[in-house]
C-alpha cells in the first residue's frame, strides 16, 4: 500500500517536471547539456596532444586550452592587449554607430518616398551586390592604415543590412494604421514616429544583428590585410612568430565581443517587443 503511494507520488512528480517552467531541470537542461559538451571538448583538446607523440616541428602549430587561458590572463594582466583591443573596439563601435545613424533614417526615407526609392535603388542594389572586400585597396589608398579606414570598412559592411531591413520593414507598414494616425492630423514625421518605425522594429533589430556580424568581419578584414594596430594585427603578427596561443586568445576576444553585442541586441529586442503576443513554445 505504501509502495503504491510512493509510486503515485513519483509519477505525479515526474508529470510535474514535464510541465514547462515548473522544474529546475526542465529549464536548465539545455544549458547544462551545452556546458557539458563544451567541457568534454576542452578536456579532449587538453588531453589528446599529451597522448600522441608529435615532432617538435609539428608541436609548433598546436596549443592547449590551459596554455591559451594562461596567455589570455597574461595579456590582460600585463595590459598588453588593451591598446589593440581599444583600437579594434573603437573601429567597430564608430563604424557600426555611423551605419545605424545613416542606415535607419535613409531606410525610412526610401521606404516612404517613391521618388527617393527610384533614385537610390540602383546604387543600393549595385553596392550591395558587390563584395565589400574589393573596396579594401581603394579604402587603404584613400584613408590610410589607421582608424578612419577601419571605420569606413565597418560602415560599408554594416550599413546595408540595416538599410535594407529598415526599408523592408517600412514597406510592410500597415496601411490602416497609417490612415488612423493621419485621421488624427498626423504629419509625415508623426506617421514615421508613431506607426512606421515601431512597425519596422523587428526588421530593424534583425538587421542590427546581421550588421554586428558584418562589423566584426570588417574589423578583422581591415586588420588582417592592412592596419597599423588592432587585435587582428596582433593575431597576424603572433601567427608569424608561431605564437598559436596568442592567435587563439585574439580569436576568443573577438568571439566574446560578438557574443556580448548579440546579447545586448537580444535584451533590446525583448524590451521592444513587450507589446507582442508571446510566441508559442517560447519562454
Amino acid at each position: 500500500m505504501t509502495d503504491i503511494r510512493a509510486l503515485e507520488a513519483d509519477i505525479a512528480q515526474a508529470a510535474d517536471s514535464g510541465a514547462p517552467g515548473r522544474s529546475a531541470w526542465y529549464r536548465l537542461e539545455p544549458a547544462i547539456l551545452g556546458t557539458a559538451s563544451i567541457a568534454v571538448l576542452l578536456v579532449l583538446w587538453e588531453v589528446l596532444p599529451r597522448l600522441i607523440t608529435m615532432s617538435a616541428g609539428t608541436k609548433l602549430f598546436f596549443t592547449t586550452p590551459t596554455q591559451i587561458a594562461g596567455t589570455l590572463w597574461r595579456l590582460f594582466a600585463t595590459g598588453t592587449i588593451w591598446t589593440p583591443l581599444g583600437v579594434s573596439a573603437s573601429g567597430f563601435a564608430l563604424g557600426l554607430g555611423l551605419s545605424i545613424v545613416v542606415g535607419l533614417p535613409l531606410g525610412v526615407l526610401i521606404g516612404r518616398s517613391r521618388t527617393l526609392n527610384a533614385m537610390l535603388d540602383p546604387f543600393i542594389t549595385a553596392f550591395n551586390a558587390t563584395p565589400r572586400l574589393v573596396f579594401l585597396p581603394l579604402l587603404m589608398l584613400w584613408f590610410g592604415l589607421g582608424l578612419e579606414m577601419k571605420i569606413v570598412i565597418v560602415f560599408i559592411g554594416a550599413l546595408f543590412p540595416i538599410l535594407i531591413n529598415t526599408y523592408e520593414g517600412v514597406r510592410n507598414a500597415d496601411k490602416t494604421l497609417i490612415n488612423v494616425v493621419r485621421s488624427f492630423g498626423a504629419s509625415e514625421w508623426d506617421v514615421a514616429r508613431l506607426v512606421v518605425v515601431p512597425n519596422a522594429m523587428p526588421y530593424i533589430v534583425a538587421g542590427l544583428r546581421l550588421a554586428i556580424g558584418r562589423a566584426v568581419l570588417g574589423v578583422v578584414v581591415a586588420e588582417f590585410f592592412g592596419s597599423e594596430s588592432g587585435l587582428g594585427v596582433m593575431m597576424v603578427q603572433a601567427a608569424g612568430r608561431y605564437q598559436v596561443d596568442v592567435v587563439f586568445s585574439g580569436l576568443i576576444v573577438f568571439a566574446a565581443l560578438s557574443l556580448a553585442m548579440t546579447a545586448m541586441v537580444q535584451v533590446l529586442e525583448s524590451r521592444l517587443s513587450r507589446w507582442r503576443p508571446q510566441r508559442a513554445g517560447g519562454e
Binding site: T176, V180, V181, L194, W275
Partner: peptide
C-alpha cells in the same frame, strides 16, 4: 473622428 471597422489600434 472615425471608429474604424477593423479597430485600427496601434498594437505597440
Amino acid at each position: 473622428a472615425m471608429v474604424f471597422q477593423e479597430f485600427g489600434l496601434l498594437p505597440w
